[in-house]
């Protein structure tokens, strides 16, 4: 592409400058195609820029940074209140002797969740997104430098509570975990397919409440598999402890697999 005017010799270019010379008179010779449209003094420049490319590049950089340090990062996503922070505090307490954990906490406002995590003794950095509804790779890069997770540790990234926006943004994670709770509708995977399409694991949380709510786990799982036939599913209760051994095994397995 021409750095002076942005015009390009690539296929698909439409140039609509009608003047003999470009108005800004750049002196380099390259053939411009015949004008297609009659709007004087404007020109059309093909850009063909992927809007997620910049985030994806930064995510790739995060991924290499993490891999160099042997840190396994998991991106945890859910609606607000599905139990991400509760699960993390419990996980860190239960696994603390076995593996070092660190957390990047994403919320629009407050340090509350970072303080809940900090009480476990784990390293934690809060990222407040303000008006933003999701973490992006740039925020995570900044968070990583502040957090400086120890080599070999397990890094949980608690995304902003939201089933829509975080789905599009790769952070550089090694795995994606979506948490649903049984107090949400079982049809969430059909309503928010983007989120479930890219998940490695779906946790169905708050199963201690199943006797009190109308939630069919089998339906929920079949909807999730429609969006993503390969998704793994575990049923848990972060407060009562059901299914947590399977979750810890999943973490161990993932960690072992990714470190080899």
């Amino acid at each position: 592409m021409c750095a002076t005017c942005g015009c390009s010799d690539d296929a698909g270019v439409r140039v609509t400058d009608l003047s003999e010379e470009h108005r800004h008179g750049h002196g380099h010779g390259h053939p411009h195609r015949a004008p297609v449209r009659a709007e004087p003094d404007t020109r059309t420049v093909a850009l063909e820029v992927d809007l997620l490319a910049k985030n994806d590049d930064l995510a790739g950089r995060n991924r290499r940074w993490l891999a160099d340090r042997g840190v396994i990062a998991l991106n945890l996503m859910s609606s607000p209140g599905s139990g991400k922070t509760t699960l993390l505090t419990r996980t860190i307490r239960d696994l603390g002797d076995e593996v070092r954990c660190a957390v990047l906490e994403g919320d629009q406002e407050t340090l509350i969740d970072a303080q809940r995590i900090g009480a476990t003794g784990a390293r934690v950095v809060q990222i407040n997104t303000g008006a933003g509804c999701h973490l992006d790779a740039d925020m995570v890069a900044e968070g990583l430098h502040a957090l400086a997770p120890e080599p070999g540790s397990l890094l949980f990234v608690e995304n902003v509570g939201n089933l829509v926006c975080p789905a599009l943004f790769d952070l550089g994670e090694a795995g994606r975990v979506v948490i649903m709770s049984v107090t949400e509708g079982a049809d969430k995977p059909l309503k928010y397919p983007h989120m479930f399409r890219t998940a490695d694991l779906m946790l169905v949380n708050k199963v201690d409440l199943l006797p009190y709510v109308d939630f069919d786990v089998a339906d929920c799982v079949s909807y999730a598999r429609r969006a993503n036939p390969a998704v793994e599913v575990l049923e848990i209760s972060a407060t009562r402890g059901d299914g947590l051994d399977a979750w810890y095994d999943w973490l161990r397995h993932h960690r072992g697999r990714l470190r080899d």
């Binding site: 404007t42 059309t44 850009l47 063909e48 820029v49 992927d50 809007l51 997620l52």
Partner: peptide, 20 residues
Amino acid sequence: SADVEVQGGRELRIREVEVV
């Protein structure tokens, strides 16, 4: 049937701009 393969439709691009 729900067993349907979908391709495309996920484009997110700036195609072109017109400038003065």
